[in-house]
């Protein structure tokens, strides 16, 4: 049975992570920032699964489940904040929320 090199799996995870990161840094729309964060979390999960698969163990998958809960909690709070944000600023521009500048 043909095998997938572990490097490729990890590189894919790194690539997805960095793409998500670029999304966080570039987008001003907080909805997209949240999406990009989801991408990054997902990429981290992918890396765990690849690691787990390398040794044929369940631990990697357990970690993904925990990441899933984090992502779920994060998105619930995050989206509630987005609604609040929009109600307050009438915009989704993350740069509007700069009250705490020094």
């Amino acid at each position: 049975m043909a095998t997938i090199p572990i490097h490729y799996g990890l590189l894919l995870a790194a690539l997805l992570f960095v793409v998500g990161l670029v999304g966080v840094l570039v987008r001003r729309n907080i909805l997209f920032i949240l999406m990009s964060i989801e991408i990054m979390l997902n990429a981290a999960g992918l890396a765990f699964v690849v690691g787990g698969a390398r040794w044929g163990r369940a631990d990697g998958q357990v970690m993904v489940i925990i990441i899933l809960t984090v992502a779920a909690a994060e998105v619930a709070v995050g989206l509630a904040l987005v609604l609040r944000f929009h109600g307050w600023f009438k915009s989704l521009d993350a740069d509007r929320a700069s009250e705490m500048r020094g």
Partner: peptide, 19 residues
């Protein structure tokens, strides 16, 4: 060092036990 992933299935049962 590189290694191959055989893709042998880790069943939900094992995951549940670990979890």
């Amino acid at each position: 060092p590189n290694a191959g992933i055989s893709g042998s299935v880790v069943t939900p049962q094992e995951v549940g036990l670990a979890l």
